Computed example of a mutant assay.
Amino acid sequence: MTHPMHRAGHVAVIGRPNVGKSTLVNALVGAKVSIVSPRPQTTRHRLLGIATFPEGQLLLVDTPGIHREQKRAMNRLMNRAARGALEGVDAALLVVRAGQWDDEDTLAYDALKDAALPVILVVNQVDRVSDKSALLPYLAKVSEGRDFAGVHPISALKRSGLEALVKSVLAQLPEQPALYGEDEITDKSQRFLAGELVREQLMRQLGEELPYATTVEIERFVEEPSPKGVLLRIGAVIWVEREGQKLIVIGKGGERLREIGTKSRLQMERLFGSKVFLETWVRVREGWSDDEAALRAFGYND
């Protein structure tokens, strides 16, 4: 039944890399729609997370982190995707890390100010602040001279402070019925999500060695009936830029690639609720991350 004051709208989730934007989107949606890793710039695509509540629906646009360094085509494309997410949204969340504010936070705030949107400041990872008395002066300092529609200290990982945040965001959205069904959690296909889950394992396991030299292409995604429901047969190609990187991904005796495949498959089965048969291969395409045509062929767009 529709709530008498039901609100719904698009909300851009903006911030510099590695402040917990994807963790926040997943926490609000209540399911893993956006991959996370300790590495900055894990999120490379604009992605819609659909969070449905009795009183309204948040269509959360998760974005790559806004960053100054634009050495490669990949960085330029990610920045354009983040800024492009501000078009046609009703409000924005500026996510920062508790106790910190640097030039890239200012860069993200300025992009929002130029878009003339209501902006709610989300101060994430407050659970990591040992001296809680330092929070109030910090909040006062970052709010000074900046126009925020609300300020919310939260921990996305521990899901604390989210109820008040949701109420605050809904107040900025137009009164209208839900735009998606309550069982929908994202606008992305299972095929896309499968590729992201493999890439998440690459970022988690090879983040120190190959932080940004890998991408994933799903070559095969077939649903087959099985005695226990549906079996998904998925073929994933891991692309790297050099032959030496291929050896790192495969690992000694294929051990690393097997581990990446196993962990990816388990995550897929959890998300899709189906049995998954996953095959992975590693191939080389030199310089793909600095080649706009290659990036578009791999599904990156701005």
Rank of each mutant, 00 (worst) to 15 (best):
E223A: 14
G99A: 04
D127T: 07
R46T: 11
L231Q: 10
A297V: 07
I234M: 07
H67G: 02
Y300K: 01
G49V: 06
K167E: 15
T106P: 03
L59P: 01
F298C: 00
R191C: 13
L162W: 08
L60C: 13
G99W: 00
Y109F: 14
M78R: 02
M78L: 14
A92I: 05
D105I: 02
W101D: 03
Y180E: 07
R159L: 09
P227C: 08
S133C: 04
V237E: 14
G9T: 09
H45F: 14
A111F: 03
T215F: 02
S133N: 10
S289C: 06
V123R: 03
V216Y: 00
I50Y: 04
P137Y: 05
R44V: 01
V216W: 00
Y300E: 00
T186V: 12
T63Q: 03
E223L: 08
R7G: 12
V198W: 01
R242K: 15
P54A: 06
G253S: 10
S264K: 05
E87L: 08
S160I: 15
G253D: 10
V25E: 05
R285A: 10
T280P: 05
L206N: 02
A111S: 10
A115Y: 15
E55G: 09
T42K: 03
R270S: 14
G299Q: 02
S22T: 08
G145I: 15
V169M: 09
M78W: 01
R128F: 10
E175Q: 10
N75D: 15
E184Q: 14
I154S: 05
I248L: 15
Q176W: 08
L295K: 00
L271C: 11
A82E: 00
V230G: 07
L135E: 09
